[in-house]
Structure formats: C-alpha cells, structure tokens
Design a protein around this nucleic acid. Structure first.
Lengths: 242, 242
DNA sequence: AAGTGGTCTAGACCACACT
DNA sequence: GTGTGGTCTAGACCACTTA
C-alpha cells in the first residue's frame, strides 16, 4: 500500500491523521494497533511510532487497556510552541492570508548584549533584518533578526530576505538552524514597536527573545519577535508527565 | 543490572541522565546505542526509547551517522511548558525555596465566561481557590482555580488546598487532571493583581488562561495564573521539525 | 570502509480496562 | 476472559558521517 519513501511511519501517521480529519472514526475511537498493522500491512512497531507522533501533536490520546481515541481539542491547536514555524505558516494556520514586508536591512555593530549572546566581538558587523508580517494590511508580527556578517557566504537579494529566516541562513550562510532557546517575555509595546504594529504604546505584548543555534550548538542568530495579542494568541497543550 | 520496575527504559534514561549530569562523557559524546545496549544488558530498542525521551527533554542531540551528544544548553532549561508542573516545583527548579499562601477559598456563582468554558449552568456554585506562591516573602506567582462544587466528593481541609491543584482534584473529586489547554496572555498587572504581587499596576505580566480536562476530555477546571516576569521567566527550546 | 543512528520486522509477555 | 495499549527482545537493512 505504501512506498518506501518517505518512511512508512510518516506515511502511516499522515494516513491516520487524514482519516481523523475526515472524521472517519466512529465515536472518536481509532482501530487497535494490531488491526491497523494488519490492514496497512506494516508491523505494529511502525504503527506505534506513527501513533506516538500523533499523540505528541495532541491529535490522539492513548489509554492502556481501553484503546486509542481522537482528541478533538488537541486538533484545534494551531501552532505548537515547541516547533520552529515560519510566521507565514503560523498566520495561515490561524486562517489568515499573510504578507511580508522587509522594513529594514542594514549593517550595524554588535551591541554588548548581542556580542555576549552570539559570542562575537563587540562592534562586530552584524546584519539586521527587520520584517513585518501582515494580515490584510493589519500588522500582526514584528521580527528583528541579527546575525554576524562574517557568516554570509553567498550573495542575496531582497527576495531572499522575505523568506523564513532559517531558509535565508541555509542559502546565504550554508548553515542549518537546529533550534532556538526562547525566552517568553511580556512587555509594553512602547512608542517604536507600537508605531510599527499600529497599537498604543501602553499595550501589553507577548515577545520572544531568542537565540538560534546550529547543529553544533553554536549560536548563530539573535532574534526578537513581537506579537499583537489581539490578532494572534499562542495556545499550548500541557500534559501530566507520568 | 536493572530491576523490573520501573520500566527498563525509564531506568536506562535515568542512568544516562545521571552520567550526563556528572559530566562522565568526554567531549559530550555518548556511547553508541549498540555499546550501551551491550553494557547495560538490554536491547537496542530499550536504549533508543530512553534516548528518545532524553532528546525530547532537550538533554541530548542525535545525529545520524555521527553519534549522540550531550546538549548542555538544553540541560539548562528549568521548566518545560508542555508539562504540568506544580508551581512549587517550578520555583524550586529556579533555585528558589517556595512557600504557598491560600488567599481565598470561597464559593461563587459561575460567571458566563466560566459556565461556557466548563459547560456548567450560569450561576452554578463554584469553588474558587486563590493561591500565592512566594520566594522568601516575595510573591512570584498568583493562581486562581475555579471548579464546579458538584464535583467535590470528599471533605477537605485548609492543608489540602495548599497542595497542587491536580492533587487536590484527585483527592477531593476522584478526578484525574489529564491536560490543560492554555492561552499565553500578556497583560498589565492592574490594581488588584498588582497589589497581590506587589508590583506597579502598569507592569506587564505573563499569564496563563487555562482550562483543565480529565482523561475523557471533559473540562473540569478553569485556571488563571500570573507570573512576575522579573522573578520567573519561561524559557523553551524550539526545534526544527524534520 | 567502518561505524553511527534511522527504520522496520515478527514475535513475546505484561498491565490494565471492559463487561 | 478477552482485548487493549505498554514494554521488551533479537535481528535485519538503510542512510549518513567520518576518516
């Protein structure tokens, strides 16, 4: 039934997910692992791996001795904080039709703060990319990405800057962005950010203060993101750890 | 080497974690899965399950073809948002010595908001438990938990209210709190909360607006939590999804 | 070429929930 | 008791990194 690539586990996961979304399981009950394995012609291990991923996503719940069940509430979660998304994807997941505007693209000297976080010399030339993500002319997200100019390996144009920052880094720096460490910070918009997001300076905002790392755990990117709480709210599922 | 219970996977995970914390792996390199399996006398599957959990926790990184490595930065993360913690644990993880004060314990009618979220009639009698978590006389976290009185099955005393809310529910309601759906909301402290947390009304705060569900996906608890950003900041690891 | 983690199989037994 | 998910085994082959 399935091909070799992508992995059987991934195909199994997608197959089950689609059936969940199409509401094909009566009373939210998913067939037993043995039954799925027999039906799809794969081993139970493969089924279990697929179900484990769906459980992580919050789409299903497994109950020992009872069965596996759809979690309709978990399916509603639009953006999981533990994953790196492009903000265009995030907006689309919320039902918006996003657009991107590059507000600034310039070279600045590394601030003491930045130099400490990214392990570069103070004053080192950095590339700053400031972007605004809009939904139908309404600004929703403001991001400021700062990376050392010395990482740049290839030329890039204005269009490259519009792409998600991990794409930009992959293509312009031959680097891979493996993960962020992100502080979740509430703050007042203030005059500057407020003006860009078209909200009052006294409005409370959610922001991410992040450092991005490559697979070797070297910091390569500093990032600050500001979200209009009235247009975009993060929702997470928090589980009991057994 | 290991006993039967808890699971071999769990014991293996703890064993490796302790060795990581004791810094026993040269250059952060963890022995290969085959080697670990041979050394510990368990199957490679068990080793892989244990490593998968450690990877989820952010403690290690696995690189196909290269090996498995300690992630010192991931180890620093003190509280992972995707898990339910008692706030006393959270504070201890941040190096604090927490104390709890029950500020309010009273019956109130369900607000329209609450009745919609918990699927109870408007005006239905609810139990409100308001608690303050302090570090050495400094208030850090304020929580307000609201649950339908009709769920209460057993008597409880003042001491019971001090315990984590999922303990309270387990003992007083014979219910299990399986997961929360939590909105992450930035807001201004305001006069009331500001007074309790001893901060200015104009201070921006992080808050969780949560609904807690039992294993059958029924809402049983509404919860609001407010955090002093200067004393407690949430940090998460965000990964690329391959 | 050798060694690593990633995928997958077929099977076994256990703990738990239903009824 | 029957069926479910949870744990565990022993083995195979693949994709990738490193030297």
């Amino acid at each position: 039934m399935f091909k070799r690539s992508p992995s059987l586990t991934e195909q199994t996961k997608q197959y089950i997910k689609e059936r969940i979304i199409r509401n094909e399981f009566a009373e939210g009950r998913i067939p037993s692992e043995h039954e799925l394995a027999a039906t799809l012609g794969v081993s139970r291990t493969t089924i279990r791996d697929a179900l484990a991923r769906l459980e992580l996503e919050g789409a299903i719940v497994r109950k020992q001795g009872a069965g596996t069940f759809v979690n309709k509430l978990g399916l509603q979660i639009r953006s999981r904080l533990e994953e790196i998304w492009s903000y265009e994807e995030v907006l689309r997941a919320h039902g918006y039709t996003p657009s991107v505007r590059v507000l600034q693209l310039k070279t600045i000297p590394a601030s003491p703060d930045t130099s400490a976080l990214l392990h570069v010399k103070a004053g080192e030339p950095m590339l700053l990319i400031e972007k605004l993500f809009l939904e139908d002319e309404n600004p929703v997200i403001l991001t400021q990405n700062t990376l050392p100019k010395k990482l740049l390996r290839h030329k890039f144009d204005a269009e490259d800057c519009q792409r998600p920052i991990y794409d930009f880094i992959a293509h312009s720096c031959d680097q891979q962005l493996a993960y962020y460490l992100s502080d979740i910070v509430p703050l007042l918009a203030g005059a500057e950010i407020g003006k860009l997001l078209q909200i009052d300076a006294q409005t409370p905002l959610l922001s991410f203060a992040e450092v991005g790392y490559n697979p070797d755990n070297r910091p390569i990117l500093q990032s600050a993101s500001y979200f209009r709480d009235d247009l975009l709210r993060f929702r997470i599922m928090r589980r009991q750890t057994p």
